[in-house]
């Protein structure tokens, strides 16, 4: 990855004046992804969702690159169609440029409603990068639970109540599902690690085939925290091993960030309103169970990455 000073000399591809919430990291992700794409032109698609809605309110678009949106569940299918058009027109000599393709989707559009379309596009080996900006719930429609929402989190469709403690189930491991597609590049990262994310975008765009990056992206409204802490929370997700930063390159797992000390999950949760109820004495068992689950997943990942536990 080029140094920030060099990157800062390049033109901005994602402008200010979009209507993402104050402190929303989706804007940062879009900017960093486009900077990482470098000098080669990119065409971007997005699923319906916060990023798409807030960045393209007619007649104001924040995208300085060709940008396409059509629906919620089909960012990958749309992108695969554009990439196919590119291959066809290029083969026929109708266009000359080398163009790359990035599809964005939130967790709702990726883990849930868009999973089939994503799986199909990856299986068909379209040369495109899919970036899931994962804020762990349907934030654009008002914080409903998704397949990415972690256990115990309060959402508006899996709320806490007199007999319920938020979402009952843990999230599915989408990054592993994507790795199971045997695509050349799969990465998982968090907002707050610009270098890791941008390096991953660069690597992903270089491979000859489809690639996928799952980046956790705190939502200040849905998670309930102060807007200035977006990057801090991204890093806490990593330091507690709730959201490990790793990559799977041609099937080989590699841990990219190994925290110096493994913080308890409560260090991540205590800053967020969605987990507030878990700190009541009667929910201590649930909290313990969540810690055990995180530990088990982390241990499994360490084995896959051939890494020793944190001392």
């Amino acid at each position: 990855m080029a140094s920030l000073k060099e990157l800062a000399k390049r033109p901005e591809s994602f402008t200010g004046g979009h209507r993402l919430c104050t402190g929303c990291g989706a804007g940062t992700i879009a900017r960093q992804a486009l900077f990482a794409a470098g000098d080669k032109p990119v065409v971007v698609t997005s699923a319906t969702g916060c990023l798409e809605v807030a960045s393209t309110i007619f007649p104001f678009s924040a995208w300085n690159v060709p940008f396409f949106h059509s629906a919620f569940e089909n960012s990958a299918a749309s992108c695969s169609g554009i990439e196919t058009a590119y291959r066809s027109l290029k083969k026929q000599g109708k266009i000359a440029d080398d163009i790359r393709f990035i599809a964005f989707g939130g967790d709702g559009g990726t883990y849930d409603i868009g999973l089939q379309s994503l799986s199909g596009a990856m299986e068909r080996r379209h040369k495109m990068l899919y970036i899931c900006y994962n804020n762990e719930a349907y934030m654009n429609t008002g914080i409903q639970r998704s397949g990415a929402t972690p256990r115990g989190a309060h959402t508006t469709t899996a709320p806490t109540g007199k007999v319920k403690t938020g979402k009952d189930q843990n999230r599915k491991d989408l990054t592993a599902i994507m790795a199971a597609h045997d695509i050349p590049y799969v990465g998982q990262t968090a907002v707050g690690y610009w270098n890791d994310f941008m390096t991953k975008v660069q690597k992903a765009l270089e491979v000859d085939g489809p690639s996928f990056i799952n980046i956790i992206q705190p939502c200040r409204l849905g998670w309930g925290y102060k807007p200035e802490d977006t990057m801090v929370l991204g890093r806490l997700a990593v330091e507690t091993c709730i959201w490990p930063v790793y990559e799977v390159v041609n099937g080989e797992y590699k841990l990219n960030i190994k925290p110096k000390e493994k913080k308890p999950v409560t260090e991540f949760m205590k800053h967020q309103v969605r987990f507030k109820h878990l700190f009541k004495p009667e929910n201590q068992t649930l909290l313990n169970e969540i810690q055990v689950e995180v530990d088990q997943r982390w241990a499994k990942l360490l084995r896959l990455c051939n890494e020793q536990p944190i001392a």
């Binding site: 402008t15 200010g16 004046g17 979009h18 007649p59 104001f60 678009s61 995208w63 300085n64 690159v65």
Partner: peptide
Amino acid sequence: LEAGTAVAFKT
């Protein structure tokens, strides 16, 4: 919609 027009929108 032309690219980059959001710069004209003040937040």
